[in-house]
Design a protein around this nucleic acid. Structure first.
Length: 575
DNA sequence: GCCGTTTTCGGCCCGACTGTTTTCAGTCG
């Protein structure tokens, strides 16, 4: 289940959106947004806090603290519900379309009574926007394109949200008497970046208690089908959950079967057939006698097929079967292998927590090293200065080694300018232990210019990591256009690592790009890009993505011991 | 609505980009 912090964050964000749509004081809407972010990023569970405790969270004042306590007491916020009654939910949905903000959404609603994305799509097709003030030809093109982007993401749910929901359901069902095993399978277990539905498995002798329990979970909004082997429900956010209860002896076969992918299963079943076996969700059986051969664990099933256990993130029929048969399956990187995070922020720029708080939380994660990489001055909204970053470095050096002897690296996230230039001159960059460099503007450059820009950034002797290289936002913005093979080659040549950014709406590079970059011999850094303490834990989505890209520890620089990492950061010359 | 103070008002990350306008509004990072 989502933390209460996340629930409140979502509610306050909704209220901020509704305020922005209905106009009035724009700063008030901003205030709610800031408070939402602060509460979502607050490390402690807010349901344990009273109004005074809440007010200690930055950007939470008297009024918002009252609304939060109202929510914690009653499960609702009256003022939010009042606003909801005035603005249909579909109008808020309109501002999820890229390039459509609150002002245009309100105009569409007031002038044309459009209150959903599908109504807007129909209106655009019918050319009904032509006479609307402020909606020219280009705007309509942008809307059409934006809707297309949303549709392509479809009804699929982002990985992190699906994980929260699934973990809540697994926790709920694990407590039911008679539960031997409970886990989620499907594309979520394979860590696809978006998830269409959830597959939850239970191993137990009697199924009815689990079917009942699922139907009664608070997250369940609607029961789709209710049977003895399978029950499907839909959550309030529209995610379908399929629960299957299998006999304990079928657990491994069922996990293998329901984890997929379909393509991977077709391969395993074909291998079974060639060996005179039949593979189903109940087990591996001898075709002739019908006798069970293996089913209790996934390892048993794979072993009987002549395969090692294959990590779920590899089960896409992208060569894992062949590699397994040859005994050459990669030992993919795991979260335990990560020795440090190399891209994180503090409240010196747009992070929520202080340097001390972030360092403390990182140490608790057991990291051997940790880099602080606040934004550079080019991102002017962050108001970074030489003085501020140098003062931070001084403080960081004092803290270095004091928290479980974790070593601190002082870095920065540079902005890659349109020509590939970065914020500071080389003599200033030399003072950093490492530099991440990212695109934050000029996303629309033509392919050639974009490629040259990225290659130039890699050629900078102080740029160690290209952050969120394509800058895509899943379901909202495609990545920039570049000749990626040329960029990857430049990374390999110059000793510049590519980031696997773990933010769940980025996952950038994505699995397919990682596979391609890996062919060039590029090294990678799996980073959280954390802006708050809870964000540090999102690293696991980056690790999952790295696994989907077949990365091993040798490929990932932040699994290396510090001495090897430091050697890499010198980029074959600088020191 | 929050916050900080030269503290109970007046500012609030600020600039770029886009498209529509013709001097600016809306959106974005």
């Amino acid at each position: 289940m989502a933390r209460p912090n996340d629930e409140v964050e979502a509610l306050l964000r909704e209220y901020a959106d509704l305020l922005a749509i209905t106009g009035g004081d724009a700063f008030k809407a901003r205030a709610y947004e800031k408070a939402a972010r602060a509460i979502g990023g607050h490390p402690a569970d807010i349901s344990a806090l009273d109004a005074d405790g809440l007010r200690e969270i930055p950007n939470v004042g008297r009024s918002i603290a009252e609304k939060v306590t109202e929510y914690l007491r009653t499960g609702r916020i009256g003022l939010v519900e009042e606003r909801r009654a005035r603005i249909p939910a579909g109008v808020r949905e309109l501002i999820t379309i890229p390039t459509l903000g609150p002002k245009k959404a309100l105009r569409l609603y007031e002038d044309l009574h459009i209150s959903s994305v599908s109504e807007l799509a129909a209106a655009v097709e019918a050319d009904a926007l032509a006479d609307l003030k402020g909606f020219g030809e280009k705007t309509q093109d942008n809307i059409r394109h934006g809707i297309e982007l949303l549709r392509r993401a479809g009804a699929r749910v982002p990985l992190a949200r699906a994980t929260d929901t699934a973990e809540g359901i697994v926790a709920g069902l694990s407590g039911v008497t008679g539960c031997r095993r409970c886990a989620y399978a499907g594309s979520l277990r394979r860590m696809r970046e978006t998830v269409g539905d959830l597959d939850v498995l239970v191993a137990a002798k009697r199924s009815a208690p689990f079917m009942d329990a699922l139907c009664e979970l608070p997250v369940t909004a609607e029961v789709v089908v209710r049977g003895s082997k399978k029950t499907s429900v839909r959550t309030a956010e529209g995610l379908q959950v399929d629960l299957r209860v299998v006999p304990p002896e079928s657990w491994g076969a069922a996990m293998q079967y329901f984890t997929g992918s379909r393509a991977h299963n077709i391969r395993t079943r074909t291998i079974a057939v060639h060996q005179g076996l039949k593979l189903s969700e109940y087990g591996l059986f001898d075709t002739g006698s019908g006798e069970p051969v293996a089913s209790r664990t996934e390892e048993d099933v794979y072993a009987r097929l002549g395969l090692p256990w294959i990590p779920p993130t590899l089960r896409e029929d992208r060569g894992e079967i062949e590699a397994g048969l040859r005994g050459e399956l990669p030992e993919v990187v795991t979260e335990r292998d990560i020795r440090g995070d190399l891209h994180t922020h503090t409240d010196l720029t747009d992070g929520l927590a202080s340097l001390e708080t972030m360092v403390e939380a990182a140490a608790e994660r057991g990291y051997a090293y940790y880099a602080v990489t606040d934004h550079a001055p080019g991102l002017s909204m962050q108001r970074m200065t030489d003085e501020k970053v140098l003062a931070q470095r001084e403080r960081l050096r004092e803290l270095d080694g004091t928290r479980r002897r974790m070593r601190l690296l002082h870095g920065t996230e540079l902005n890659i300018g349109p020509e590939g230039e970065v914020d500071w001159p080389e003599e200033f960059l030399a003072g950093f232990d490492l530099c991440v460099a990212s695109l934050h503007s000029h996303f629309g450059l033509a392919r050639g210019a974009m490629t040259r820009r990225l290659v130039r950034a890699c050629e900078n002797p102080y740029v160690n990591v290209v952050g969120h290289p394509t800058t895509r936002l899943i379901g909202r913005r495609p990545g920039v256009d570049a000749d990626w093979d040329e960029v990857f080659a430049a990374c390999a040549r110059t000793g510049t690592a590519l980031e696997v950014n773990a933010q769940p709406d980025r996952l950038d590079l994505c699995d397919a790009d990682i596979l391609r970059a890996r062919e060039h011999g590029v090294k990678f850094a799996v980073n959280s890009d954390a802006h708050s303490v809870p964000h540090l834990g999102q690293l696991r989505y980056g690790v999952g993505t790295a696994q989907r890209g077949w990365l091993t520890c040798d490929d990932v620089i932040n699994t290396w011991p510090l001495t090897r990492l430091r050697r890499f950061l010198r980029k074959g010359g600088r020191h």
